[in-house]
C-alpha cells in the first residue's frame, strides 16, 4: 500500500485544531507553549465552548497568544491576569474565563492577584506554565528557579543564602479553600500530553460548573533559556524539575 493511498481525508486521525490559525508561532523551536496552545484549542472546540471562551493573555512569552487561537482574548498588565479574569467572570458569568500565565507572571509580579483570586474562589481556570526561568527577557532567575540552576542573573547557580528557595506556588494555592482543582502536569511525552489535556478539560468543566478556581500547572521547558536542545531540555526537566515539582493532582474536590 502506497503512502498516497493512506493519506485521504477519511483516514485522518489527528491534525491541527480548527481554532488554531495559520500564523507561525513566535516561540522557539521545541517550546512547550505550543503544545499547551494546541491542547487549549482542541479542548475549547471539543467542549463546544469556543464562542463563550475568554482567554487572558499574560506578559511573557505567551503575550501573543491572541495571535494564534481564534477565540476572544484580553491582554492583561504584567501579573494582573487573575484580576482581569475576576472582572470578566463576574460581569459575564456565563462565559468560560481562563488565564494563561508563565511563572514570572504568576509567581513573581502577580503573586498577590493570583493568591487572592484563588482565595476568593473565582470561577476561572488558571493555566500556569512553569519553566523556572524568565524566558522572554533573556533567561533571568525566576522565583521558581531551582537551587543551583544557572541563569543569566545567577551565572554560578541559584544560591539559597542570596536568592532564597524555589517557590512552589501551586502547593500554596492547593491549601486555599477557594480552589477546587489544583494539578501539576507536563507535556514532554505523548502520555504526559494526554494527561495534561484531561487535566485542562477538568479545569474548564469546573469553571463552567462554577465550582471555584482551578489551577493547572504545566511544568515545561525553556530550551533557549536553559541553553539546551529541545530533546535535551525535556530530559533535563524530567531529571531535575520533577524532583521539586512532582507531577499529579494536588487537590481535587
Amino acid at each position: 500500500m502506497d503512502v498516497n493511498d493512506i493519506i485521504k481525508p477519511e483516514n485522518k486521525v489527528y491534525g491541527k485544531p480548527v481554532l488554531m490559525n495559520d500564523n507561525n508561532m513566535h516561540y522557539c523551536p521545541g517550546c512547550s507553549h505550543g503544545v499547551v496552545h494546541k491542547l487549549v484549542a482542541e479542548l475549547l472546540d471539543e467542549m463546544g465552548v469556543a464562542e463563550k471562551a475568554v482567554g487572558i493573555a499574560p506578559v511573557g512569552c505567551a503575550v501573543f497568544a491572541y495571535n494564534y487561537l481564534d477565540i476572544d482574548w484580553v491582554e492583561a498588565a504584567h501579573g494582573r491576569a487573575p484580576a482581569l479574569a475576576t472582572a470578566i467572570s463576574r460581569l459575564y458569568p456565563e462565559n468560560l474565563v481562563f488565564t494563561y500565565q508563565g511563572d514570572g507572571d504568576l509567581a513573581a509580579i502577580g503573586t498577590c492577584e493570583t493568591i487572592h483570586a484563588a482565595n476568593r474562589g473565582e470561577n476561572i481556570t488558571i493555566i500556569f506554565i512553569n519553566n523556572a526561568i524568565y524566558g522572554m527577557t533573556g533567561g533571568q532567575m525566576a522565583p521558581t528557579t531551582l537551587i543551583g540552576m544557572k541563569t543569566a542573573t545567577t551565572p554560578y547557580g541559584r544560591r539559597v543564602d542570596l536568592n532564597g528557595y524555589p517557590l512552589a506556588i501551586t502547593d500554596l494555592l492547593a491549601r486555599l479553600d477557594g480552589t477546587c482543582y489544583v494539578t501539576r502536569q507536563s507535556v514532554h511525552t505523548p502520555a504526559a500530553v494526554r494527561k495534561a489535556k484531561a487535566a485542562i478539560k477538568k479545569a474548564f468543566q469546573n469553571s463552567l460548573d462554577k465550582k471555584g478556581t482551578s489551577i493547572v500547572e504545566i511544568v515545561s521547558t525553556c530550551n533557549s533559556g536553559w541553553k539546551m536542545s529541545p530533546a535535551a531540555a525535556n530530559d533535563w526537566m524530567a531529571e531535575h524539575m520533577f524532583e521539586k515539582y512532582p507531577l499529579g493532582d494536588l487537590k481535587n474536590v
Binding site: I6, Y14, K16, P17, N24, M25, G34, R194
Partner: peptide
C-alpha cells in the same frame, strides 16, 4: 503530532 509544539503534523491511519 501530540508532542509537536507547532501543530504541523497531520496523521492518517488505515
Amino acid at each position: 503530532a501530540l508532542v509537536c509544539p507547532d501543530a504541523c503534523i497531520e496523521v492518517y491511519k488505515v
